[in-house]
Design a protein around this nucleic acid. Sequence first.
DNA 1: GAATTTTATGCAATCGATTGCAAACCCTTG
DNA 2: CAAGGGTTTGCAATCGATTGCATAAAATTC
Lengths: 342, 342
Amino acid sequence: MPRKSQKAVKSLQDLADLAGVSRATASRALNDSPMISTRTKKKLRALADKHGYSINRQARDFRLRRTSVIAVVFMLDIKSEQHMSDPFFLDMLGGIADCLAEHDYDLLLAHAPISNVLDLRDGRVIRQSDGVIFIGQGEQHEQLNELATGGKPIVVWGYPVAGKNYVVVGSDNVGGGYQATRHLLQQQRRNIAFFGNTNNPENAARHQGYLKALGEFGLEADPKLKIDVPFEMHRAREVIIGFVESGANPDGVVCLSDVMALAALSTFQELGVRVPDDVAVVGYDDISLAAYGSPPLTTVRQNIHQAGRILVESVLGIIRGGDVGDTILASELVVRKSSCAS
Amino acid sequence: MPRKSQKAVKSLQDLADLAGVSRATASRALNDSPMISTRTKKKLRALADKHGYSINRQARDFRLRRTSVIAVVFMLDIKSEQHMSDPFFLDMLGGIADCLAEHDYDLLLAHAPISNVLDLRDGRVIRQSDGVIFIGQGEQHEQLNELATGGKPIVVWGYPVAGKNYVVVGSDNVGGGYQATRHLLQQQRRNIAFFGNTNNPENAARHQGYLKALGEFGLEADPKLKIDVPFEMHRAREVIIGFVESGANPDGVVCLSDVMALAALSTFQELGVRVPDDVAVVGYDDISLAAYGSPPLTTVRQNIHQAGRILVESVLGIIRGGDVGDTILASELVVRKSSCAS
DNA sequence: GAATTTTATGCAATCGATTGCAAACCCTTG
DNA sequence: CAAGGGTTTGCAATCGATTGCATAAAATTC
């Protein structure tokens, strides 16, 4: 350990004084400007090291009129009651946080339910960030479109909609819904229910995949088998109980999330409906708990962690002025032995 | 909608010009300074409203030499492999985020595994925040102590240790471990295992509660029944398989988290050990999935969301210069019918 | 050695707020 | 009406960096 210096070197000025140069030179030296001689650079770097000087990012960002903050907004739909405690969100958040950290950006989390994203314009999320990542489109496609035209870099996790002018990162939801449904059909199941709210583009696409699979097997969807199950477990349970007691009798269920599927599994068993004998269940997301349900859950995996990284790369791309296009990731059916009879 | 003004009012100076006063007066008016007459205040407020002016927090914070940021560090122990995807973390994060937002603070998330918290001193977490919340003490009691003496406001979620000089918020871990164990003992179970790593104060306290309960029933702990199960599901499974195959034969298990308990449940069943007939399992945390395992999980509930809020109030209290003491929240056993025979 | 080019450094304005102190204003009152 | 007191307001420095432009120093050429 080097001897402690007389007084802390807190600002660039302190450092410059110590080196006998001006603040300007110190700044340029540390930023590796070509205007500065190698000798001076070396000297200043060494001095900075020795005295533990590190730049005041707040001051720098202030001067450069930027924030080094990316806001992340979880579009929790109040009606469908998806919680931020859905492990899906955390996986994604993890990917985002990792990638932002690598690029030296901060993460500002907004998690309150947002009834209208345009309201964000007056708040910190928009004004005090360099860009925003929205997780989910909700039913606010129009508003997102308007926000995007406001000049703030925006990227949305969801599904491309005709006429959008914001950047989308998403997974192949049609394919996911299709694979899940076909898997059930291949087991000779013919009364396949669809659990979940489809009033946002992402979920609508999965439903489209569901219809496509049914079509290939020459089936028509039974509207009674499509119900709007909330994402929250306790409320999901209530709805599913109502569904079963109303006499519905599916032999397969495609769910919009694993949490929902786990609730379904548990509720069916509670009601004496055997899984997978009477009804097979397929989930979505492949959260880590999926493998540990009983029975373990067959589900559609999206690479959420990677998705988080791509979201970040996309906003940063826009900030840098690049021409950023949409990204659609593959979905993959993960078959586990028991939630669907093999 | 009022007609758009000629040019955007972006800075205080713009607003002051518009009102025909100086920047200083505008600043004081918006901050409700007693130096300013009511008439001037009203005028400036109205003008600010009308032209959609809102203060530049970055500039203000810069001037006031503060950041309005509280950092949250999850002390993920590499060895025990607890993930941030443990729902426990998200619940707590939710409480923290809510409360910070109410106080107009930002949240900076640090989630990488931290091998030595003192390393944080050079990073943004410490330098660019007004205070830090640590979730968990890990094995770094000493380092936390040193950090706390560095003058940065710090609050730790964990369990009070003798000689600490940082503020702790935690729950009654001794009581939690005690209740869980006693519950099993009351069902005439006598070979009760303890799953999880106890090398941090929080978990050690739970183990102490476990020992206390055994003692009250005149039992001694069997060291073979205490094993170091990782928090991560897949790894937990491996360890539990090893445990059972080595001939261990507990009739009850106290786990350090629900995720671990769910892994235990599933692994036992996979191995043909019946739950709760052969072995009863108690978890910790009462995550929302706990009620939906099969069988549903008996567990110790901590009010995590509230804990998050208290953590925030505590750091802010320290920042304001208050005299902040520790907080210990109650733990409550939640008995569900099946993971332990009633 | 003087003139010219190249390279390295410094001066000072700037970003948008806050605040101590001085100055201007408005009332009373003698 | 001038002096004295209380109320409002403005001036200008400040926080810690970046950067265009001017200038100084060094290197090159004649």
